[in-house]
Design a protein around this nucleic acid. Sequence first.
DNA 1: AAGTGGTCTAGACCACCGT
DNA 2: CGGTGGTCTAGACCACTTG
Lengths: 267, 267
Amino acid sequence: MPTPRNNGPLYLQFARAIQERIDTGEYPPGSRLPSEPELCGQFGANRLTVRQAIAELDRAGAIEIRRGVGTFVRRPVVRATIDVDPNSARLDVGSQSVPVPVRGLKGTEERAVEVSVGSDTAPDRQAAEHLRLPTSALTRIDTVIVISAQPWAVNSYWVATHLLPTGFAESTESRNTTVAVAEAIGIELEYDWRSFSAIAADIADAQRLDVAAGSPLLLREGVSCAPDGRPILYVRRRIYGENASFVMRYREWRQADQDSGGADTSG
Amino acid sequence: MPTPRNNGPLYLQFARAIQERIDTGEYPPGSRLPSEPELCGQFGANRLTVRQAIAELDRAGAIEIRRGVGTFVRRPVVRATIDVDPNSARLDVGSQSVPVPVRGLKGTEERAVEVSVGSDTAPDRQAAEHLRLPTSALTRIDTVIVISAQPWAVNSYWVATHLLPTGFAESTESRNTTVAVAEAIGIELEYDWRSFSAIAADIADAQRLDVAAGSPLLLREGVSCAPDGRPILYVRRRIYGENASFVMRYREWRQADQDSGGADTSG
DNA sequence: AAGTGGTCTAGACCACCGT
DNA sequence: CGGTGGTCTAGACCACTTG
């Protein structure tokens, strides 16, 4: 009996209705939403339609679904902050020392999960462009950074195959890959550039990060170069969006202009 | 006839299967996927199940669905790059001059879409904390940046209500809000800090940006302060992830160390 | 055992796009 | 017009969590 198509599809109307109940405090943070059958009754709609509305709110990050338990209004997220300091970050010494302000943070490790030579996907071609080499000349190292037994980020590194000693891949387990690469090829690496953008988790990344496909990821790409400027290493780090925030503290830099040599905490 | 629950739900198996066809080049970029009925036949499953697999790939950004036409493998995205230069960006003069390398880029404007005083949602409380004022003392200005008639970003600005002249909201149409605020309150604004992270589009942002709820957005937050360091303005800009990438060119900064006063292109 | 959310089917009708 | 994807229903069975 609801208005047919005046206000868009039913499931969006329901999603907006529930969101409004959250905004007005009718469903406060942490509280349980009515169960799916209950909402079906309230809205007079099929369960699948109601579920579509709920899925919308879930993807939007407004609610948290706990299977077998119920659906709850999400509390505001606390993100880890990582400083990006252009003055101290000029030497690329990697960045495993993520200052994550989360309880029980022990055991940070970077595990290589896959090494491929000369593969040719879209990111491979992008890497080839940045390093000015054909994809066939590159080795790609995929790793996962695990913090407190939780996958925190996935990385892909590309470097010219001829620079790497044979058997390098096997030796990189549980190590900082950037440092390992720099040592292996005997070149001190500097930042060329770094960039930030937001992407959707593809199916492979979603599996490795244990999140839903399409989840927002913070993509941090960059090239590290030799002291003479030759591009050596292309890195693509994908971090689950809620896990991190990169901060540039302009005012602090201004105040401590002559200070230098701070700890590298750039992610 | 398919294996029941050994490899996870059917729709994920189908999604992975289709993704693999894309990765192997069986479905090259730009090509049309089989229609839903065709895929139902291939997989021997219900249309809704197949659609769930397709939706997964859509959210992951692997495909593009054109209603009434078909479903296509997406071509790699070209992102606009925006330089973040800590040396030239010390004065906050706003940043409407986004150098977007997209054809037909004319007409950039920032429209105020909503002004509220003393509202008290989660972001409002965050703003209050950053500006060290109660939420009741703040005015919030929501704007949309439109480029080539396309919504490009949504912004929320918070500033102490008592600093603003009465009737300010009506005068900000089609203007750079940061500049307008700075002029209105008669204070020259500097960057205090800026941060980048990734968030999911909530329902309101999704509507304003004309994207699906849950789409990855690049969140750029920050505080601008008076020359004496007092925090004045808190900004929250949400940009559709595929639209922008913020770049820090360390090597260029190193090479041109004494140069200063470049154009402000920070988004 | 009871209640929650997760998956899947069969079938229907609609909105959009191209020809 | 025919084919595409979008929405919706009714009903079934399953997996998970809690008591």
